[in-house]
Write a protein that binds this DNA or RNA. Structure first.
Ligand SMILES: [Mg+2]
Length: 320
DNA sequence: GCGACAG
DNA sequence: ATCTTGTCGC
């Protein structure tokens, strides 16, 4: 079953609505932790993204409504009781005891009765569907390539695609609004959605897309490259600078990367691609490409562009 | 206190 | 990813 961009974007809008509802429900005189709000949203791992999200809602409004909301940002603390510097005074005025930057008696003050929908769980369900979509005849070669990267400035994003493989090299750039924070394991919803918009707008149909992130080398087998490839029905490969999950030996120039006892990708010394560099980069199949195909096609792309393909897109995206 | 989780 | 001076290594 195919997903569509509008359905996904709708869920991202829901994310902001639910964060707002959750934040507004914390009563005066109480505090809530970022972790508990994240858990109510479906994943405690999103806790680190929430201070920024709440602040954005208050200052600028969510990216959909763009109407600033007076969320009680000051009632949110870290799970160890730590309160943001600028929130301490407001909290004290509400009768909360503040000692050395922390909530006096956290267990008695903390409120966690959120009744919001678990949007992040819904996002994970989409990831699982994309991961299950992994079959189809896999490609073993490609003639035209698109490498992509995204840079950020506040809530603006610059998406840059580099098309190559048929002689010339073409750059495509699109500037848009960021719709979702960075949460480890959910990169597709931040960058993939913007990249899909860019490819729609310019009607790009390369044989394969090379993305700055992982493919099946992901907790749910559904990284940025996998989900985007599945959405667009374009074969894709993940090219990451570090691991999110999994591990590998460090003896040969090219090593297999394993996750839960199964090979999910490759670690390739950068020196294989470029003159310098001793670090590994991580290649994994996205969608419509197998393990062997991902490595073969990636090395071909690197050879044609004469360097690391995603790095090429990275430099492009750095120029606003 | 330390380690850690793509971008 | 971004914020940023000087510093290290090829
Ligand atoms: Mg990037």
């Amino acid at each position: 079953m195919r997903q569509d961009l509008e359905q996904i974007v709708k869920l991202l809008e829901t994310f902001w609505m639910e964060v707002k509802r959750g934040a507004m429900s914390v009563p005066r005189g109480a505090v809530a932790t970022y972790g508990d709000l994240a858990e109510a949203l479906g994943d405690r791992g999103a806790a680190r993204a929430l201070p920024g999200v709440l602040e954005e809602i208050k200052r600028l409004g969510d990216p959909f409504s763009r109407v600033p909301e007076n969320v009680p940002l000051h009632r949110f603390v870290r799970s160890d009781g730590w309160i943001r510097e600028e929130c301490r005074e407001a909290l004290m005025r509400e009768g909360v005891e503040v000692r050395e930057g922390r909530v006096g008696d956290l267990p008695s003050r903390v409120w966690k009765d959120f009744s919001i929908s678990a949007v992040l769980t819904a996002l994970r369900e989409l990831q699982k569907k994309a991961a299950a979509d992994m079959h189809t005849p896999q490609v073993h070669d490609a003639e035209s390539f698109l490498s992509v990267d995204v840079s950020y400035a506040g809530r603006r994003a610059l998406i840059c695609g580099v098309l190559f493989g048929r002689g010339d090299v073409e750059e495509v750039k699109v500037e848009t609004e960021v719709l979702f924070p960075y949460v480890p394991g959910y990169l597709f919803f931040r960058e993939g959605v913007l990249i899909a918009q860019m490819m729609d707008e310019h009607q790009l149909k390369p044989d394969v897309i090379l993305l700055d992130g992982h493919g099946v080398l992901h907790p749910r087998g559904s990284g940025l490259a996998t989900h985007l490839g599945s959405l667009l029905r374009v074969p894709s490969i993940g090219v990451a600078k570090s691991l999110l999950v999994g591990g590998h030996r460090k003896e040969k120039e090219i090593e297999a990367v394993f996750l839960a006892g199964e090979q999910r990708g490759w670690a390739v010394k950068k020196s294989v691609i470029k003159k310098r560099g001793r670090r590994y980069i991580y290649i994994s199949p996205g969608w419509g490409v197998g393990l062997e195909g991902s490595l073969k096609i990636y090395l071909k792309a690197a050879d044609i562009i004469g360097g690391e393909p995603v790095e090429r897109a990275h430099r492009c995206a750095a120029r606003w």
